[in-house]
């Protein structure tokens, strides 16, 4: 089992080549398939590559991703509308993080270059020393609300001062920002299992073929993961001449809960 988690903390996390071991392996595979793959990539890949810039390994990943997606979809236009080009990352043949033995392969979107604001963090944090003290944020990140872990969490619990472009696991290994679900799963392992097997979370794209899953943080804000109530969409509309036949719902609450009905008798 290969983990795309950096093997040890002594290694310098910054150089792009150190992103993950499996992508190195794929880079080798890519070289083996060489020109064929490059031809197959096409213009979409070119754009994707331009967007991602400095990571040739993930360009290979995208090539493979596009290849798979196109064999699944019938109509290119739908693939285009459903998949923003060049945003996928292949996680591998198995689920990552916890080695469930029979998890079907899946893909997740790349977020770190475009969708994570201010990434890479090292742009600023290279210049400032990390302050481990728990304190209110007054200069930067003032909009960040940490409502997670009942007040026990502080930035450095997940982000490590030694390399802020990465998350850090409980045993001190670095985790790529796009693989953040591994870190979520360290506590929420039941949810991670459900997510990998497909009973939790969103599958995007097609029902058939390679699964493309939304990452945890696309729905849950990692800093305050609870989802606030929202206004529901409009209730069913009744045909004009029938409105008088449907009266507003009666409040059933006082009858429906059996424990409330039996309570007075026992008092």
């Amino acid at each position: 089992m290969e983990y795309p988690i950096l093997p040890n903390k002594s290694q310098d996390p910054r150089p792009p080549g150190a992103q993950c071991t499996s992508s190195r392996r794929r880079a080798v595979m890519l070289m083996a398939f060489g020109a064929v793959a490059l031809l197959a990539i096409g213009t979409a890949l070119y754009r994707a590559q331009a967007a991602e810039g400095e990571s040739p390994a993930s360009a290979g990943e995208k090539a493979q991703a596009w290849d798979q997606i196109e064999t699944v979809g019938e109509e290119d236009e739908w693939v285009e509308t459903v998949y923003d080009d060049g945003k996928w990352i292949i996680i591998g043949e198995r689920g990552i993080g916890i080695p469930w033995y029979d998890v079907e392969p899946y893909q997740i979107p790349i977020r770190k270059w475009e969708d994570i604001p201010m990434y890479p963090c090292s742009d600023c944090h290279d210049k400032w020393p990390v302050n481990h003290e728990q304190r209110p944020m007054v200069e930067e990140h003032t909009d960040l609300v940490v409502d997670h872990g009942d007040g026990h969490f502080w930035c450095t619990g997940c982000h490590d001062g030694r390399g802020l472009d990465f998350l850090v696991s409980k045993d001190g290994r670095f985790i790529d920002m796009d693989l953040s679900y591994i870190q979520c799963g360290e506590c929420h392992f039941e949810e991670l299992k459900d997510w990998e097997y497909g009973s939790h979370g969103l599958r995007i794209g097609l029902w058939r073929g390679t699964r493309v899953l939304r990452n945890c943080v696309e729905c849950h804000n990692a800093h305050s993961p609870a989802i606030a109530p929202i206004e529901p969409n409009a209730p069913p509309k009744i045909r004009g001449n029938l409105v008088r036949f449907s009266k507003p719902a009666v409040e059933h609450s006082e009858h429906s809960k059996v424990w409330e009905r039996v309570a007075p008798k026992n008092n």
Partner: peptide
């Protein structure tokens, strides 16, 4: 049949 009072319910 909208001129009747039949509905999807009844």
């Amino acid at each position: 049949l909208a001129v009747t009072h039949m509905s999807d319910q009844v």
